[in-house]
Amino acid sequence: MATTNTTMTRIVCVAGARPNYMKIKPVMDALERRGAEVLLVHTGQHYDESMNGVFFRDLGLRPPDHFLGVGSGSHAEQTGRVMTAFEPLLARLAPDAVVVVGDINSTLACALVTAKAGPLLAHVEAGLRSRDWGMPEEVNRVATDRVSDYLLASSPDAADNLRAEGYRADQVHLVGNVMIDTLFANLERARQSDVLRRYGLTRGGYGLVTLHRPANVDDPGVLAGLLKALGVIAEHCPLLLPVHPRAAGRLTELGVPGGLRLVPPAGYLDFIALQDAARIVLTDSGGVQEETTALGVPCVTLRDNTERPITVEQGTNVLAGRDPERITATVARVLEHPPAPRRPALWDGRASERIADVLLTGGGAATRPRPTDLI
């Protein structure tokens, strides 16, 4: 691999919330190993200990160089505050490029500021599509791709989506999945966790549940239906649910069925250990669909669609939707006949090195696309 930075010397990496930390850490490490000056900007979209501090410690992620402290709020409020705070900072830092990851509000906000300010913009996890415009994340990821120079795709379907949408060939780079870089780098440490002992669990003796999507937890009727399904499943397989702050209050209001145990949010290492040892995982998280695929753990996704179809086509993931009867039937089938583990190509722990190759050796777009390029 090339060791000299031929195109960029200063790169700003942006993180804002828990899903970003696992994606930005390997990218920063790969860029710094190649001699780039890397500045970490934390927007503060997630800021409390359970959603922020424990992840920095578990991942060995250094303190951010700049913290914007935007906090929570509506989509418009949060996006606007990030843009207002990031714009003067970007002008002061004057980087050659900005790297954004994922699909949260901070991703889009910093992408828009960068696109207007002039530095090159790289989007890690470009091209993922659920085609569900009811998901705020879908709006964020599509809009971020539109203003990015480097579109760094984690899977062939994502790259195909970008080409079908008319992006130039020199913008689209199939690099693999940085989430899996972080997973593989920390898996043995995670397996040393005592989280199973703390919760009185045995390997293969429980199911793991995560719920946080607005479509699942904000509507009491939908959440009640999911809890009903989880109650039926828990009669045959005890379930553990680390509670996302978004869902905590509503779960308390509705009541939790027997066999479903609520525990506090888990740090990164503990959560990987819980996934790795689970008999089955039920989730509405995109990242968990990827991690279970890499771990070879059966996963049932409690959504009607996924922006990560490769986890269904080549992994251990099954879409069950949100209908309680369909969920229970799907879980029963998966428990009886678990899908054969298959790991997608380039989910090999080296995606961040390929990203560094693209950004530091001139392997990508040199100018931002004009509107006519995409017609």
Rank of each mutant, 00 (worst) to 15 (best):
L93H: 01
L359F: 09
T292Q: 03
D145N: 12
E307R: 01
V124W: 10
F67N: 15
R279Y: 03
P242Y: 13
A109I: 02
V256Q: 07
G259Q: 08
V172D: 13
Q275D: 00
F271Q: 00
R370K: 13
T3Y: 10
E253R: 14
A164V: 09
L183F: 11
Q289L: 01
R303V: 03
A215S: 15
E307Q: 01
L211D: 04
V334W: 09
L254M: 06
R168P: 12
L31P: 07
M51H: 07
L251N: 02
A2M: 09
P324Q: 05
S285V: 01
R10K: 13
T9Q: 14
Q314S: 12
A365F: 01
N317Y: 01
T3H: 14
L227C: 13
V288T: 03
A356T: 06
N177G: 08
L274W: 00
S148A: 15
G176S: 14
C237Q: 15
T252E: 15
L208Y: 01
L31A: 08
P338H: 04
P220N: 12
T43I: 06
Y199D: 13
R81F: 14
A17K: 01
M22P: 03
I24Y: 09
A320Y: 08
L223C: 06
H212C: 10
S130V: 03
V101F: 06
A117Q: 14
G286V: 00
S106F: 04
V263C: 02
T283C: 01
T330W: 08
I11D: 05
D29R: 08
V222F: 10
R279I: 03
T328R: 13
R131A: 10
T292R: 02
H173K: 15
R354M: 08
T107G: 09
H123F: 05
G259R: 06
H337Q: 15
D149E: 10
T330G: 09
D29H: 02
R322E: 06
S74P: 07
L240P: 04
G166H: 05
L59Y: 02
N5K: 00
A190D: 03
L61N: 09
P214H: 15
G200T: 09
E253F: 02
G127H: 08
A159T: 14
I327E: 08
V334S: 11
R131K: 06
E235K: 13
N186L: 15
G287T: 00
L187Q: 11
G249C: 08
L90D: 07
T202M: 09
N216Y: 04
A158T: 10
V217S: 08
L39A: 05
A169S: 13
H244S: 11
C13D: 02
A158M: 11
V14P: 00
P214T: 14
L174G: 08
G259C: 10
R198M: 03
R92T: 15
T43D: 05
P136S: 07
T328N: 03
M83F: 10
A332T: 13
E137C: 12
T144F: 00
R368G: 02
L302T: 00
D96A: 07
L31D: 05
A365K: 01
C237S: 12
M179R: 01
V281G: 00
I233R: 09
R163M: 12
M8L: 15
R198C: 02
D323G: 06
L68S: 03
E77H: 12
A109Y: 05
P119K: 07
